[in-house]
Design a protein around this nucleic acid. Structure first.
Lengths: 167, 167
DNA sequence: CAATTCTTTCAATTATTATTGAAAGTTTTG
DNA sequence: CAAAACTTTCAATAATAATTGAAAGAATTG
């Protein structure tokens, strides 16, 4: 396969995969484009390569910057903003985890906490419900705790020591 | 909060959360309903409680059975099929992980493998691309391997031993 | 075996989400 | 400070995904 074909296919692949996981297809495609680009690109470049509108390109580049997956760069004598992606895949994984935790897991825990207090007389029904909610709270907290630990561990420790531990 | 209110809110919460993660809102709501129901429910019950159509209820119940999150039950003297959810949250987590692995991670790995072979003369561009793809392959494989390990570990080992290891 | 009861399918519709692109906003330049 | 160059916004539109419900299909019953 030609390099350019491969890059294009990767952009499609990443877009499809992202949209299965609740990430906007264009955002994932912009990310894939910048991830496989050796030089930083301006909005115009992104628009042209992906055949998307200025608004779409701008919005998704900004969103990728909010996720700390893309940085802004400027060059002397050029007024345009250029963008470059974080290339370290371990960093990418850590940052995505961190953001989803902040945006989704923490609010979920908040909501579950509210649901764990139920009024009314004790009953089997009530016990069953509060039991399920607290099981979910424990599960979420523990998976969350694991993600914290993994994010603090560096790649070497993670890929070396820990996996061996389970072998 | 009243028990019935809390259940309804939980159904909404689970539906919203699911749709953020690429799971159909109705499917997540049916799951939440069955998860917090002490008795098994028939299609009619699900339709009425969630105010959804017969087709929608049927399709999502079937899909939840495909995911091994819901079982079919029958009662003598009643021709209808009744449904009951797996209640063990650790089992639920394992089964969701297993299905997403099979449906998404494995095809992703397949696609990445295809992209890792690039024709044409060696170049810095090409090296960069194949490097990024193989980094991604390693990341995906390792996260996947971790999920295997976690699925094999039982709840006690997971929640006890391993977390301590990182403390 | 035909009537009944329940389940499944799927084309049409509705709802949701993403995208466009022109206009407004901002920054830089001479 | 006004023109130029670039960025951002957002109402309108388009694309995608979910839902409906009537009809067809299966299974069960008497």
């Amino acid at each position: 396969m030609e390099l350019e074909t491969a890059k294009q296919q990767f952009i499609q692949l990443w877009g499809n995969f992202g949209s299965q996981w609740g990430i906007n297809r264009s955002m994932a495609q912009v990310h894939a484009l910048l991830l496989t680009s050796t030089k930083s690109l301006c909005t115009e470049d992104v628009m042209e390569t992906l055949s998307i509108s200025r608004g779409n390109a701008n919005m998704n580049i900004r969103e990728l910057m909010n996720w700390n997956l893309v940085y802004k760069e400027t060059f002397p004598g050029d007024r345009r903003e250029y963008f470059r992606a974080e290339k370290d895949v371990w960093e990418i994984a850590k940052r995505i985890t961190k953001e989803r935790k902040r945006r989704e897991i923490e609010p979920l825990q908040q909501h579950l906490a509210e649901l764990s207090v139920v009024d009314g007389p004790d009953s089997e029904e009530k016990e069953a419900f509060t039991g399920t909610i607290s099981d979910l709270q424990r599960l979420v907290s523990r998976l969350d705790g694991l993600s914290d630990t993994l994010m603090k561990a560096d790649e070497h420790v993670f890929f070396g020591k820990i996996v061996q531990f389970f072998k």
